[in-house]
Each structure stands twice: as C-alpha cells, then as structure tokens.
C-alpha cells in the first residue's frame, strides 16, 4: 500500500527558499503571488493491507525520522 506524506515548515518558521521562489515568481509577472512555502513530499510503499495500520506505521516514521517536529509539521494524505 502506498502512503503519501507531506512535510511542511510550521507557521512562523522562516522559509528562505519559499521567499526566494515567491520573489522570482513576482519578478516573472506573477504579481499576485503573496507567499510561497516549500515542503517535501514522500510516497512510502508499506507491506501492509490494512490502511489504518499502514497509516499508523507511517505516522511513527514521521515522528521519528521524516519530519523534525521542532520546525516541521506533517500530513498523511
């Protein structure tokens, strides 16, 4: 089963890459871009048929490795 995870910086944590992307987009005449936050996306193939179990495993992985909870939030989608 494939489980998908999105890791993003928490609100309030400075995202200089997102800022640089936003400024570039603005410079390319996408003037209505007000903010960009960059994140990470994972597709995790888990050998598990039960979706609930698979998601709970991935949740554990997020806490232990995929996200650093000091600055990042994660969402299993």
């Amino acid at each position: 089963m494939k489980i998908k995870v999105i890791v993003t910086l928490k609100n309030g944590v400075l995202d200089p890459q997102g800022k640089a992307i936003q400024q570039t987009l603005n410079g390319m005449n996408f003037g209505n871009v007000e903010d960009v936050r960059q994140g990470k996306y994972f597709e995790i193939e888990v050998k598990e048929k039960d979706e609930k179990k698979a998601k709970s495993l991935v949740d554990d992985m997020c806490k232990k490795l995929l996200a650093n909870l000091v600055i990042e939030d994660y969402k299993i989608v």
């Binding site: 944590v13 400075l14 200089p16 890459q17 640089a20 650093n68 000091v70 600055i71």
Partner: peptide, 15 residues
C-alpha cells in the same frame, strides 16, 4: 537530530 541537543540548524538566512 539525536535529541541530545535542543533545536535545529536551518538553512542560512540568505541562502
């Protein structure tokens, strides 16, 4: 990252 020290080192402010 091990948790022995608090906090995290992020990318430098001016990239």
């Amino acid at each position: 990252e091990t948790g022995l020290l608090n906090g995290i080192l992020q990318q430098n402010k001016f990239l």
